[in-house]
Design a protein around this nucleic acid. Structure first.
Length: 439
DNA sequence: TCTGGGGTCCTAGGACCC
DNA sequence: TCTGGGGTCCTAGGACCC
């Protein structure tokens, strides 16, 4: 907790729906619901006119339609949202370089990082920023909280929402926070709230009545200790402008459950390549590939494998994801599949063979007697080796090819490196994916 | 026609190493 | 020879956020 109210939290009101109303005047003053339009969609954002009818974020679209049949239902235009978001974030960076975006419509700003910050005139500053944002975005409104910590700033931005602001006077934090529900503290969701309720803890005041040890026993080390401090408004977390991406993933819920393995292989293959594309685009590579599946009964599982070195190769990521799918029971059908990559490194994969190649044996003939047609090995290709069996290419270059050997029962097989012209090596035929996938 | 998609962080157990 | 750490990495799952 700082001695001045220098942390700002800004939150754009009903962001997606507001952008739609801004761009389409006929929607202004009317209920607008943005979200998945398919039969399994959920609400992403509801305009305040729709919230009157009880429509909320994360609600099933079917229920939203029942509650508010006359609303406009829209699928969302993310390019437009991203553009509006950039305008807002840019304006915030004029206040201070220390801006931490939390999503497209939310950010923290450490005002003390700005050159001309005057704590006594924070109200003026907030009024000005909100007016500027409305101007620059052609009509979007924002709610703002300013306080001595991230916790209190975030809570403050809720107080006069929408289109309002609240500044927590330094010294008043405990009084502001105490009467609130424990769920007002970010990180206390339904599961935690229920655990707390069972031992009679409902408000922040109630939380303060517990010892650290008691909260740790109840919620675990990290959450227990954190909640003990946050309930006392003790929060010195810094605004972090440059947080590194930890994982990249893609997932899709099917309109109806899918049992067909070939169809699933096609989906997983495409997803892995999509993730690879996003990795490449950001100059990243990753070591751990995770396959997520949700069964017809909503039971959800993940499986992952970790490579010895990071990659952004679409073929490699697809092979690994398909290998994980291979080990999945499809009985009853899948409702969702997803592919993710973590263990990210910010160097681009290509240096697997950057080290000098080991010297080949002296007696290695320079030319072979029967001139074999050289194979251009590339990542993800099928390979057969006379001794080691079937595998696929994990890396190739500088006269060497690294092969990963795997079987149905052991999708994460051993890895061996050979000379490109190793006579025991030949193009393989066993495919983890059906031919249609390879096409 | 119950229950999205993209993330973050934490926990816990087992393997492995010192 | 037996016992017992601790630290790190990997996998799986869960809570939470927008």
């Amino acid at each position: 907790m700082r001695s001045t109210a220098s942390i700002m939290h800004l939150d754009l009101d009903a962001f997606f729906a507001s952008v739609e109303q801004r761009d389409k005047p006929s929607l202004r003053g009317k209920p607008v619901i943005v979200g998945g339009l398919g039969n399994r969609g959920v609400v992403s954002t509801a305009s305040y006119e729709a919230r009157v009818h009880g429509v909320r974020s994360a609600m099933r679209m079917a229920e939203a339609r029942a509650r508010c049949p006359h609303a406009a239902f829209l699928g969302g235009r993310f390019d437009a949202y991203r553009e509006a978001s950039q305008v807002v974030m840019q304006r915030l960076r004029e206040l201070s370089p220390l801006v931490e975006p939390l999503s497209l419509d939310e950010a923290f700003v450490d005002l003390a990082g700005g050159e001309h910050f005057e704590p006594d005139r924070v109200d003026e500053l907030v009024t000005q920023v909100r007016a500027d944002i409305q101007d620059l975005t052609h009509g979007l409104t924002a709610s703002v909280g300013v306080a001595s910590s991230k916790l209190m700033a975030k809570i403050a931005s809720e107080v006069n929402k929408p289109d309002g602001a609240f500044v927590v006077a330094p010294g008043s934090e405990l009084d502001v926070l105490g009467p609130m529900q424990a769920t007002a503290i970010p990180g206390v969701g339904p599961a935690t709230a229920e655990r707390l309720r069972r031992v009679g803890i409902v408000t922040v005041e109630d939380l303060r009545g517990q010892s650290v040890d008691e909260l740790v026993r109840l919620l675990g080390q990290a959450q227990g200790a954190s909640l003990w401090r946050l309930s006392r408004a003790e929060d010195d977390r810094a605004v972090e402008p440059e947080r590194e991406t930890k994982s990249i993933s893609v997932e899709d819920t099917f309109a109806t459950d899918v049992t067909d393995r070939v169809r699933l292989q096609r989906e997983v293959d495409a997803m892995a390549r999509k993730v690879a594309g996003r990795l490449t685009k950001h100059g990243l590579s990753g070591r751990t590939v995770t396959l997520k599946v949700r069964h017809h009964d909503f039971e959800t599982h993940t499986r992952s494998t970790t490579l010895p070195a990071p990659t952004d190769s679409p073929a490699v990521l697809a092979r690994l994801a398909l290998g994980l799918l291979e080990a999945t029971d499809l009985a009853g059908g899948l409702r969702l599949v997803g592919v993710g990559v973590s263990g990210l490194a910010d160097w681009v994969q290509d240096d697997l063979f950057d080290e000098p190649a080991p010297l080949l044996p002296d007696d290695q003939p320079e030319t072979t007697e029967t001139e074999a047609v050289p194979v251009a090995w590339g990542p993800g290709m099928d390979v057969h080796h006379d001794e080691h069996g079937d595998g696929w290419v994990w890396g190739a270059g500088l006269g060497r090819v690294t092969v990963r050997f795997e079987t149905r029962t052991s999708p994460a097989g051993p890895i061996r490196t050979f000379a490109t012209d190793d006579p025991h090596l030949s193009p393989g035929h066993r495919l983890a994916a059906p031919d249609s996938v390879e096409a």
